[in-house]
Simulated scan of single mutants.
Amino acid sequence: MEHAATILIVDDDVSAVRTLSKAIAGLGRIFFATQGDAAVELARDQKPDLILLDAEMPGISGFEVCRILKEDPSTSNIPVIFVTAHTETDREEEGLALGAVDFIGKPIRPAIVAARVKTHLYLKLAMDRLNRQAQTDGMTGLANRRALDQTIAREWQSVLRTQRAFSLLLLDIDFFKRYNDHYGHLMGDECLIAVARALAGCAERPMDLAARYGGEEFVIVLPETTRDGACQVATKIIESVRALNIPHAASELGIVTVSVGAASFDADSGGWSLLENASANPPGLKFSASELLCVADKALYAAKQAGRNSSRFEAIEARSAEKVGPVTGGN
């Protein structure tokens, strides 16, 4: 296995948790919950590789927990194994219909539990490897457009559920066509790779995502990030790319630089009022993550109009972009 697997055990019986923990000891990092609602929050926060779930619990049942997790894009791919004393065929069919991958009866047989957990962990981690390959840009090593679209959709659902801040940065390399024309496409590819590495270093948190949007354009997804945080990352990106000191004789700036457009959906953006007043808005007017990307694109255009090698922030309801960083070069 490429990394230490994580396993969430959910059971309101602490002795059952201990028994299961002992049976799968050594197969991964184990944590547990004794209530359904706590299990849902842990799964969303920790993203375990596998969940062992008691079907019968007070409050939210295991079946309801499974349904919630499978309907949430951020947790839908986590395999769930039901562990229950009720092994009737109809109950097993119900669990499998909800998306569970297996059923284990109580009282458990430790060797059987360990074998099934090991098998499903192997399958999960193998699928994760394939998904990473399918969602990685072959040249830069960043997330590709497919991964970007999925991440934005998933994080946007989290925004609507938790009402936490969310920011996007859209950027591209200044005068990149001139760079290709002057140095050739092989050097252009090397430039893209170097800039991509700098961007990856600026997306520091595990929840952040640096992705290639297309050509010389990139997007940084910043969950739980307000305008101030987004502007700080934008400034850091500009400085990091400048620090590469890649010569660019065809640019008035002399070195490779980037322009960055920032947009945020937070308490100060006005975005929540758009959602809350949707019924009062004209038919079809809805704000979403795709619109937020359009706002970031307007900010990027403003940064380029201001001379490039700079960042701009565009408020959702603003008519013009607002400067967030110094313009150190220009046409």
Score class of each variant (00 low, 15 high):
residue 4 A to R: 12
residue 6 T to Y: 01
residue 6 T to F: 01
residue 11 D to A: 00
residue 11 D to F: 00
residue 13 D to M: 02
residue 13 D to V: 06
residue 18 R to E: 12
residue 20 L to P: 02
residue 20 L to I: 04
residue 22 K to S: 13
residue 24 I to S: 06
residue 28 G to E: 04
residue 33 A to F: 01
residue 34 T to M: 09
residue 36 G to P: 02
residue 38 A to Y: 00
residue 41 E to F: 00
residue 46 Q to C: 02
residue 47 K to E: 04
residue 47 K to T: 09
residue 49 D to N: 14
residue 50 L to D: 02
residue 53 L to R: 00
residue 53 L to K: 00
residue 54 D to Q: 00
residue 58 P to K: 00
residue 58 P to E: 01
residue 59 G to D: 05
residue 59 G to M: 04
residue 63 F to H: 11
residue 65 V to F: 01
residue 66 C to S: 07
residue 66 C to G: 04
residue 67 R to D: 10
residue 71 E to Y: 00
residue 76 S to Y: 00
residue 77 N to H: 07
residue 78 I to D: 03
residue 79 P to N: 03
residue 82 F to Q: 04
residue 82 F to D: 05
residue 87 T to A: 15
residue 89 T to F: 04
residue 91 R to A: 13
residue 94 E to G: 01
residue 96 L to F: 10
residue 98 L to I: 13
residue 99 G to S: 05
residue 103 F to Q: 00
residue 104 I to N: 11
residue 105 G to K: 08
residue 110 P to Q: 14
residue 113 V to Q: 12
residue 115 A to C: 12
residue 117 V to M: 09
residue 118 K to S: 15
residue 119 T to R: 12
residue 119 T to W: 00
residue 124 K to V: 06
residue 127 M to A: 14
residue 132 R to D: 15
residue 132 R to T: 12
residue 132 R to A: 14
residue 141 G to S: 07
residue 142 L to A: 09
residue 144 N to H: 02
residue 144 N to T: 06
residue 146 R to C: 03
residue 147 A to S: 11
residue 154 R to K: 15
residue 156 W to N: 11
residue 158 S to I: 10
residue 159 V to K: 14
residue 162 T to Y: 15
residue 166 F to H: 06
residue 166 F to Y: 12
residue 166 F to I: 09
residue 171 L to A: 05
residue 171 L to Y: 03
residue 173 I to L: 05
residue 174 D to A: 07
residue 174 D to Y: 05
residue 177 K to R: 08
residue 178 R to Y: 03
residue 178 R to C: 06
residue 188 G to K: 09
residue 188 G to W: 11
residue 189 D to I: 11
residue 190 E to D: 15
residue 192 L to M: 11
residue 193 I to V: 15
residue 195 V to R: 07
residue 195 V to S: 09
residue 200 A to F: 13
residue 203 A to P: 09
residue 208 D to R: 05
residue 208 D to Y: 08
residue 208 D to S: 08
residue 210 A to H: 07
residue 216 E to N: 01
residue 217 E to A: 01
residue 217 E to W: 01
residue 218 F to K: 05
residue 220 I to D: 02
residue 220 I to G: 02
residue 224 E to I: 03
residue 224 E to Y: 03
residue 230 A to M: 03
residue 232 Q to S: 02
residue 232 Q to R: 07
residue 233 V to P: 05
residue 237 I to C: 15
residue 237 I to M: 14
residue 239 E to C: 04
residue 240 S to K: 11
residue 242 R to V: 07
residue 244 L to C: 10
residue 246 I to P: 06
residue 250 A to W: 03
residue 253 L to Y: 14
residue 261 G to S: 03
residue 264 S to V: 04
residue 264 S to K: 02
residue 265 F to E: 08
residue 267 A to E: 10
residue 267 A to D: 07
residue 269 S to V: 05
residue 271 G to P: 08
residue 273 S to V: 06
residue 283 P to W: 11
residue 287 F to G: 04
residue 288 S to G: 13
residue 289 A to D: 14
residue 289 A to P: 11
residue 292 L to M: 06
residue 295 V to Y: 05
residue 295 V to S: 05
residue 298 K to L: 14
residue 301 Y to H: 12
residue 303 A to K: 10
residue 305 Q to A: 15
residue 306 A to E: 13
residue 316 I to Q: 09
residue 319 R to I: 09
residue 326 P to R: 09
